[in-house]
């Protein structure tokens, strides 16, 4: 019997690979990454997602997500 190898669905967030979930929103990505800082700039495949859209903007599998934390601190 032939064994089927299932490849995991993933996305990259700031060049780090994480598992993709069905109906994954930007908010969910931030939760998974534990990105709790408020002043973020999020881009999914190069397109800016506004803060107000985090809850419903979907992240497709294989997406390249960039989450920039703006430099606060001291």
């Amino acid at each position: 019997m032939e064994t089927q190898q299932t490849e995991k669905n993933t996305i990259t967030v700031n060049n780090r690979t994480i598992e993709w979930e069905e109906n994954m929103t930007v908010r969910r990505v931030l939760e998974v990454m534990n990105y709790t800082f408020k002043m973020l700039v999020v881009k999914v495949n190069g397109r800016l997602v506004k803060r107000k859209d985090y809850d419903h903007a979907l992240v497709p599998k294989d997406a390249d997500v960039k989450v920039l934390h703006l430099v606060a601190g001291g």
């Binding site: 700031n14 989450v67 920039l68 703006l70 430099v71 601190g73």
Partner: peptide, 30 residues
Amino acid sequence: QHDEAWVIFMDMVNNQIPTFEDKAEALHYF
């Protein structure tokens, strides 16, 4: 003292300045 440069998020979290040249640019500008 961090008042010269605070680039932890850019580097460690954003992974925005991966190469030595990128880091050097940040440690010039900021």
